[in-house]
Amino acid sequence: MMLSILGTQIMWYVTRSSGFIALLLLTMTVVLGVSSAQKVKVGKIPRVYFAELHRSIALFALVLLAIHIFTAVVDPFTKLGWTTAFDPFGRTYRPLYLGIGVTAFDLLLAILVTSLLRDRLKQRTWKKLHFLSYVIWVFAVVHGLGTGTDSHYSFALAIYGVCLLAVVISVWVRILDSETKTSLLRFSAYALTLFAPFLLVLWTLSGPAKSSWSKRFVPNVSSSHVKSVTSPSEREAGE
């Protein structure tokens, strides 16, 4: 009995920490990927090393995500089934933010597969799917903040903050440096990278950063309570 309680607790800790590590790795992957287009050299390090690093860190992130999902599913506390790993809908446990995380994982798998089969695909198909990385990254952050067990801790907020800064700065450098003449693409990139982080911070401060946020997700509550998870207004009213 003792052991099983300890066991499930360990699962829970592993789920949370592997999630954070996966986010850090995904952030590194995005930063390396975005800045690979800059033809700047860091000291005497051959640029190809960073390309290799992008690849291996991405794979490492997938391993961490496998652990993250495995422990989350195995944990009896969450009552998740194995289909959770691939099917983003119909969860009873933190449905919205869990679904966003699952969606991100599925998209990531699509990028993995197209990257492995890259030489058999059109370059454009591969590249287009790779652009989804930004969406995946944002989804990963929202999933992390939204599922929210740790979101109100300052250490967690610091991690999200660092990740956000790293990605936004690398994208800005990339836009400033690009020779893309299409001003529309440029403009929308600027607008997105200014607007999206702003929204993200606002949303975080209004919800996940409050310690009351995660308490709303206590499982085994009445169905009316579960419903309120998807409705922010009800959540606010409940305070």
Binding site: S36, K39, P46, R47, V48, A51, Q123
Partner: peptide
């Protein structure tokens, strides 16, 4: 016509 001069090949 496709090469963008990333230089990875030369470095390797």
């Amino acid at each position: 016509t496709v090469c963008d001069g990333y230089g990875y090949c030369v470095e390797l």
